[in-house]
């Protein structure tokens, strides 16, 4: 069968919308702006990332996320009455998890569903400089590499039987960090060489094969985010 490139392939949301949502989520969920006044929006923003996971058909990830969230939420509620020092420490841990988890899931969703090429083009349309967008796209590209490398190094240490044998804590850190940085530095050098021989440069106009535009789901999310800020403003300055 003949292959035809489908340039309309896209995830549910436009990269710009995703970033707006991430921004909103870090202000209202992690930053807790508006507190009780934002009650309804808070819960929408907490569960929205799960809906996005469902839209990507990541049933299992969604279920696990909800389980962790609900579990730690109720556990920390239960621990709050007359806690001992340890219990309150545990409660704080769980509380921080409930704060951070939704945004982390959102961030993971964005990294997984946004193509580097798409991201560069969308940022370019918002006139964000290459000096930020190129490093950011490299970060996305590089997290899995760092994970891959450190796993290999860890395996090697286990195989050689020196993970416990390291005499001092400093050696344990040194043995992990040195090969990791050496290896990442070499990969980075080769990556730059390859990218530059393919014409990547700063401040030059690029095209993008993916069709980037706002669609209906974007509209809903953008309205939601703007409403959050407006409602917060009303609460803050008028009431």
């Amino acid at each position: 069968m003949e292959y035809r490139l489908d340039r309309n392939v896209h995830s549910l949301l436009d990269p710009r919308t995703k970033l707006l949502l991430l921004f909103t989520s870090s202000v209202f969920v992690v930053g807790n702006a508006g507190e009780k006044w934002m009650y309804v929006f808070y819960w929408i923003l907490v569960y929205l990332p799960v809906l996005l996971l469902l839209a990507e058909k990541e049933w299992k990830a969604a279920a696990v996320a909800v389980a962790i969230y609900v579990g730690s939420f109720y556990a920390q509620m239960a621990l709050q009455h007359d806690p001992t020092a340890w219990e309150s420490a545990l409660a704080l841990m769980l509380y921080i998890i409930t704060k951070i988890l939704p945004t982390v899931i959102l961030a993971r969703y964005i990294v997984k569903t946004t193509k580097v090429s798409e991201f560069l083009a969308a940022m370019n349309r918002m006139h964000v400089t290459d000096k930020l967008t190129i490093p950011i796209s490299v970060i996305f590209r590089f997290f899995p590499t760092v994970a891959e490398e450190s796993r290999a190094i860890n395996d090697a240490m286990r195989m050689r039987g020196i993970e416990m044998g390291a005499k001092k804590a400093t050696e344990a850190v040194e043995y992990r960090m040195v090969p990791l940085i050496a290896s990442c530095s070499i990969i980075g050098e080769e990556l730059s060489a390859a990218a530059m021989t393919r014409g990547l440069d700063v401040g030059k106009k690029r095209s993008c094969i993916w069709k980037i535009r706002f669609r209906f789901p974007d509209l809903i999310i953008i309205v939601l985010c703007l409403t959050c800020f407006v409602w917060w403003g009303i609460g803050r300055f008028f009431i």
Partner: peptide
């Protein structure tokens, strides 16, 4: 700053 520098920053 060229692409190499920016890629290094990212890494």
């Amino acid at each position: 700053l060229n692409a190499k520098d920016l890629i290094n920053v990212g890494i």
